[in-house]
Structures are given as structure tokens and as C-alpha cells.
Amino acid sequence: MKIIRFLLLAALLSAFMPMSFARDPLVLPPHLSAAKLQGSGRLTWWGLHIYDASFYRVGSLSAPEFALDLRYQKSFSGSSIANRSVEEMKRIGISDSQAALWGKELTSFLPNVESGQTLTAIYTPKQGTTFYYDGKQIAQIPGTEFPKAFFGIWLDPKTSAPKLRAELLGQTCPPPLFNEAC
């Protein structure tokens, strides 16, 4: 009888504990091995847990390199991820024509994801944005305009997920790529 009460009490207490999620450490390319977690959060939509996001910075907070890691909790097709990315880019001010071009490029390489799988995007000046699927490189998009739009989905003040933005950035500013005054 004591064991049953203990288990019931443990179950009741766990219902009131704050939700957290365990993360495997992000494996980054050697030149980014000094990256440190700046912030993490969870995206939910209508109560559904979509993904856990982690934002990494390399070196100081003024360093230009950074990474965003998304661990999906639902299954999505690569094309639906690309389409949603395009919609979010347009929401923060990217033109329809530019968003359509980037959408085609994203659709060409974004894979279908299952629960537990990760997509990671890393920005490095002079190289652009490199994408990884479960730790394996899948694509690279050069330049600085694409990362402003793509990472802006999470880091721009006009994001559709301001709570997640705050969790990712913590008490610090966005990367210098965004030229946002703090």
C-alpha cells in the first residue's frame, strides 16, 4: 500500500514539475567546436509539441558564427518545412519573389523528418548557411541575405514565435548579422 501511495504521489508531483527536455550535445564542425548553448525553447502550435530549438553561439556574444538546432517531435515532409519557412520569411518582410526562390532551394534538399530527428543550420561568414540532417551535411547556401531571412524566422523581432525568440536569445542580443541595437 505504501508503494502505491508513493507512486501516486510521484506521478502527481511530476505533473506539476516544470517541463524540460534532455538534449544530446550538438556535434559541430571543428572550427565551431567552441560553440556554447545560448538558449533553448519549445515550439508548440495549438498545444502540439512541434520541435525543441537550441541556439548556439561561438566564442563571445559579438562573434558572427552561430547555429540553430531543431529536434522535431512530429513528422513533416521536407516540402512542408520549406513552405512554412517561406511563409515565415515573408511575414518578417522578405519579398514574395525572393521567398519563392529560396523556397525552391529549400525544397530541393530539406528531407522528411520523423519525431526525434534533427535539422541544424549553421551560419559562418564567407561560407553562408550550412544545413545538417541528423548530423550529416546536406546543403550549403552562400551569402548573407539568406541567413538574415532564414534565421530571422526565429530571431527577428517580427517572428511569429516571440516567446521562443526570447528563450533562444536569453538576456543577450541577436548575432551581429541582424544589426539590431540592444
Rank of each mutant, 00 (worst) to 15 (best):
Arg91Ile: 04
Gly128Lys: 11
Phe146Ala: 08
Gln98Met: 11
Leu110Trp: 06
Lys126Asp: 15
Ser160Thr: 07
Lys163Trp: 12
Phe131Gln: 10
Ala100Met: 03
Gly116Val: 05
Ser160Asp: 10
Ala99Cys: 03
Val86Gln: 08
Ser115Val: 03
Thr118Glu: 13
Asn112Trp: 02
Lys163Ser: 15
Lys126Phe: 13
Lys158Thr: 07
Phe150Met: 10
Gln117Ala: 04
Asp134Tyr: 01
Tyr123Ile: 09
Gly143Gln: 07
Glu114Ile: 01
Val86Lys: 07
Ile153His: 11
Gln117Ile: 01
Ser108Gln: 11
Glu114Met: 13
Ile94Met: 13
Lys90Ala: 03
Arg91Leu: 12
Gln137Ala: 12
Phe146His: 02
Trp154Tyr: 10
Thr130Asp: 13
Gln140Thr: 15
Gly116Gln: 10
Glu105Leu: 00
Lys136Met: 02
Pro111Thr: 02
Phe109Asn: 07
Asp156Met: 08
Arg91Thr: 14
Thr130His: 11
Thr107Tyr: 00
Lys163Met: 14
Glu87Tyr: 13
Val86Leu: 06
Trp102Cys: 00
Ser108Ala: 15
Gly143Leu: 10
Leu164Val: 11
Leu155Ile: 06
Gly135Ile: 05
Asn112Phe: 03
Val113Ala: 01
Pro125Lys: 05
Thr129Val: 12
Pro142His: 12
Pro157Glu: 13
Ala100Lys: 11
Thr159Asn: 07
Gly116Met: 08
Lys104Gln: 10
Val113Arg: 00
Glu88Tyr: 05
Gly116His: 03
Tyr133Gly: 00
Thr144Trp: 13
Arg165Tyr: 07
Lys148Arg: 15
Phe131Arg: 05
Ala100Cys: 08
Gly152His: 12
Ala99Ile: 02
Asp96Thr: 14
Ile94Arg: 09
Gly152Arg: 09
Lys126Ser: 15
Lys148Met: 12
Gln98Thr: 12
Val86Cys: 01
Ser160Cys: 01
Thr144His: 14
Phe146Lys: 04
Asn112Leu: 04
Thr120Gly: 07
Gln98Ser: 11
Trp102Met: 00
Leu155Met: 08
Ile122Leu: 14
Pro162His: 09
Thr107His: 11
Phe109Tyr: 14
Ile94Trp: 02
Ala121Thr: 04
Gly143Ala: 08
Thr118Leu: 09
Lys126Val: 13
Ser160Gln: 10
Gln137His: 01
Phe150Trp: 08
Trp102Pro: 00
Gly103Ile: 00
Thr124Trp: 09
Thr118Tyr: 07
Ile141Phe: 08
Lys163Pro: 05
Thr124Val: 15
Thr159Trp: 10
Leu101Phe: 05
Pro147Cys: 08
Ser160Asn: 13
Tyr123Gly: 03
Pro125Asn: 06
Phe131Lys: 04
Lys148Thr: 05
Lys163Phe: 12
Thr129His: 12
Gly116Cys: 10
Ser108Arg: 06
Met89Asp: 09
Ala139Phe: 09
Gly135Tyr: 05
Pro147Phe: 01
Asp96Lys: 14
Ser97Arg: 15
Phe131Gly: 03
Leu101Gln: 11
Gln137Val: 01
Ala100Gly: 07
Ile141Asp: 02
Thr107Asp: 12
Lys126Asn: 15
Tyr132Ser: 01
Gly128Cys: 13
Gln137Phe: 00
Lys90His: 01
Thr144Pro: 10
Tyr132Glu: 06
Thr159Leu: 11
Ser160Pro: 00
Phe151Met: 03
Asp96Ala: 14
Pro147Ile: 10
Thr129Cys: 11
Pro162Ser: 06
Lys158His: 08
Gly116Ile: 03
Thr107Trp: 00
Ile94Ser: 08
Lys148Asn: 07
Asp156Ile: 06
Ile153Pro: 11
Asp134Thr: 05
